[in-house]
Amino acid sequence: MGHHFWFSSLLNKLLGPAVIFVGELLGAEFQNRAEPIPSAVAHLLLVAVLLLIFFWWLRRKLSVDSPSGWQHILEVVVLGVRDLMDSIIGPHGRKYLPFHISLGTFIFLANLIGLVPELESPTANINVTAGCAIIVFLHYNWIGIREQGLLNYLKHFAGPVIFIAPLMIPVEILSHLARPFSLSVRLFANIFGEDMIIIVLTALLPFILPLPIMALAIFTSLLQAFVFVILSIVYISGAAEHHEAHAH
């Protein structure tokens, strides 16, 4: 899309030359030297900075006896995800809670920010969703290797019986590789589709007509973040379960 978002333009104006300088030092080539920071990256950084500011502000206001509304909401979210992780992974999975809360809040805000005029959802860009999905992929594989050791972790790719290993290994590898693909495409397609429908409906009739889709977009923003997080939890649980199964 050729639309210039104000935040992207501002960031390119402020940091563009520095990015080009550092990028060229590292041997990168910029096709668009006027805007070296892509819009999705600019908005991704905006979401990250907004979240940092929000959590910094909220942290200063934390109270045990009289929590604010935001603290209530965040506590409900954190406790909900924690209980979910307890039921799927078990209590030992709580060490992965900060990762999932960070991931979930980032995706939720990234999904939602596209509803604000002159801002773009970073998750409407496949590169961003693929980035998140690859992080999840590396994360759960790293957990599996760390908890079981490389050899034991790779063993479960061969399946329970050795003579079906030639069949199981390609299937397992494909199934694992499909995970980041499905994660990234699902999130990207949903958010991109929603944003496009909202833009098109707004173009047709700027007022009222896009409201139902916008309401739906708020709901799906939450739902997609939840789906992304729960799938990540399930993948980690799979890696941990193999470990327990081998141990028994």
Binding site: V116, F207, P210
Partner: peptide, 10 residues
């Protein structure tokens, strides 16, 4: 109008 419409709808 797109911006105004989005702002209004939001």
């Amino acid at each position: 109008w797109l911006t105004i419409g989005k702002a209004f709808n939001l």
